[in-house]
């Protein structure tokens, strides 16, 4: 039986684990949703430079008073850290496409075992547009997916082959869910960490994708820091 987790625990567990991936000085773009929470969990002593595609290098937390002239990609007001820079969209996407970002953290509709990512369009439903996502997954050195393990209806999001239109082909480097962490190593999806209380059998039951299990499989890092 998979453990029952509150939405808060799920969101912060995923964000906390992803935040442990970064090194001092890494340049990182965070998408909206769970990825936004990653900045709350950066370990002490690690300076991550957050980039927002609308033109900030060195984005800081929401200021005490809103100034609508400084916003993030999701429209929330933000601060610019001392030492930050404001840039135009062409420069911002030059940084993104040009390989100057260490990582991008995004949500997913589907990820498949080949590292394909779909997160921009459900044909017949919404046509939101890809925004900056296609550029981000093309240019960032590491594409980190932050997603719940299944859809709200319990359908697997980690699948054999994406049925939805792709955002990028063979781009994903890491997937973190509330149950597990998978890394793509030489094109192969590898289970490296599993959350406490989740058995390998439980995990197989909610994962359609085929993966190999690391010989160093461990308990998912950061779960021991959860308050409840």
């Amino acid at each position: 039986m998979l453990p029952v987790l509150s939405e808060e625990v799920v969101r912060h567990r995923i964000a906390r684990r992803i935040a442990m991936e970064f090194e001092d000085g890494d340049v990182v773009n965070l998408g909206i949703g769970i990825p936004t929470l990653v900045s709350d969990h950066i370990p002490e002593g690690v300076r991550v430079i957050f980039q927002t595609e609308n033109g900030v290098v060195g984005a800081g937390p929401k200021p005490p008073e809103d100034d609508l002239r400084f916003i993030g990609a999701g429209g929330r007001c933000l601060s610019v850290i001392p030492g930050g820079a404001l840039i135009a969209s062409d420069f911002s996407f030059g940084l993104i496409r040009g390989g100057h970002l260490d990582a991008t953290v995004l949500g997913a509709l589907q990820v498949d075992q080949e590292g394909n990512l779909a997160n921009w369009w459900i044909p017949g439903k919404l046509v939101p547009g890809m925004g900056g996502a296609m550029d981000l997954v093309t240019g960032a050195k590491h594409v980190i997916v932050a997603t719940t393990h299944t859809t709200k209806k319990g359908q697997p999001k980690l699948v054999k082959k994406c049925s939805l239109p792709l955002t990028g082909a063979k781009v994903v480097s890491l997937v973190v869910t509330e149950y597990a962490l998978f890394r793509f190593v030489d094109g192969q999806m590898v289970l490296e960490e599993i959350a406490p209380g989740v058995t390998e059998e439980d995990l197989k039951g909610v994962t359609e994708a085929e993966y190999v299990t690391s010989s160093n499989l461990s308990i998912m890092k950061g779960c021991d820091e959860e308050q409840n």
Partner: peptide
């Protein structure tokens, strides 16, 4: 009519 373009490509087309 709607033409969707990735954001980085959109601004490069304008440039």
């Amino acid at each position: 009519e709607l033409e969707l373009v990735p954001q980085g490509s959109f601004v490069e087309r304008i440039r």
